[in-house]
């Protein structure tokens, strides 16, 4: 190949101008790699064209544009080939570590605090429960003491009430304090009254047979020891207990006479 003729053809000037086809460009490129004279020629043409075109520029060395371009591209002025890593030093790491520890600490403290609050609440409830139990025990003790003193009292007459008819398996006891005009009814031998019914206590005189109501036992189910204190100013000769509709009756319903007992004279 005649290198000189190739150069003189003017193709290299068109190559620099960008006026050749893609195929021709590749051809020139390969020849440049092969022949240093061709490369040299291209370099000189290019340098001359750069000077020619630059001579037309109204502004020489326009740094302002470069800065604007860099700002637009977000270039920092450092080599951007290596993506700049934020510079973390030990202070940064220590700071982060400290804040993480602080957060864990705060979380732990809060959890502990909540746990303690719950514990206190539980203890408070338990304490209240105990106080109630103590109060109950105290009042039970007082009741028991009262009962003992009643049983020991010489002035008190015991009247056993025996089960009647269909209710022969039931029983009750009346402890009558005549001076204080009251009776203590021990009704432990009676079953719980059915729904809507109550036991009614009667004082009786025998000649003629006259019942006087001493009232109904409305709190039979809820009372623990089934001992009921009832006023009785009558000259009773016998005591009976019938089952009556809630609210009680004027006269005893004899079919539901559970227990009956006669006061022994003397």
């Amino acid at each position: 190949m005649d290198i000189q003729a190739y150069i003189e053809s003017g193709i290299l000037e068109l190559y620099v101008a960008g006026a050749l086809s893609e195929k021709e460009n590749k051809e020139v490129y390969n020849l440049m790699l092969q022949y240093p004279e061709i490369l040299q020629e291209v370099l000189e043409i290019e340098a001359a064209i750069i000077k020619l075109t630059a001579s037309v520029s109204p502004v020489k060395h326009n740094d302002k544009i470069l800065q604007a371009v860099k700002a637009h591209l977000g270039l920092t002025g450092t080599n951007s080939n290596v993506i700049p890593m934020p510079k973390y030093n030990w202070v940064t790491y220590t700071g982060w570590a400290a804040s993480v520890l602080l957060a864990i600490g705060l979380f732990w403290t809060t959890t502990q605090n909540n746990q303690l609050k719950t514990d206190i609440q539980i203890v408070k409830t338990q304490q209240e429960l105990l106080e109630t139990q103590i109060a109950n025990a105290k009042s039970n003790l007082e009741e028991a003491n009262t009962l003992i003193s009643v049983l020991r009292d010489n002035n008190i007459t015991k009247i056993p009430l025996a089960g009647q008819g269909n209710f022969s398996s039931t029983y009750a006891n009346v402890y009558w304090d005549k001076q204080q005009q009251r009776i203590y009814l021990d009704a432990e031998g009676l079953p719980e009254p059915p729904e809507g019914k109550v036991y009614q206590v009667w004082s009786l005189t025998l000649n003629p047979l006259t019942p006087t109501s001493l009232g109904t036992i409305d709190n039979f189910i809820t009372d623990d020891n089934k001992i009921f204190e009832i006023e009785n100013a009558n000259a009773s000769e016998a005591f009976g207990i019938t089952l009556e509709p809630a609210g009680g009756s004027e006269t005893p319903t004899m079919e539901f006479l559970y227990t009956l007992g006669v006061v022994n004279a003397g």
């Binding site: 064209i49 750069i50 000077k51 020619l52 075109t53 630059a54 001579s55 037309v56 520029s57 109204p58 502004v59 020489k60 060395h61 326009n62 544009i65 470069l66």
Partner: peptide, 9 residues
């Protein structure tokens, strides 16, 4: 850049 500015201008 100068060359380009000449061409553009």
């Amino acid at each position: 850049s100068e060359s380009m500015q000449g061409v553009i201008y």
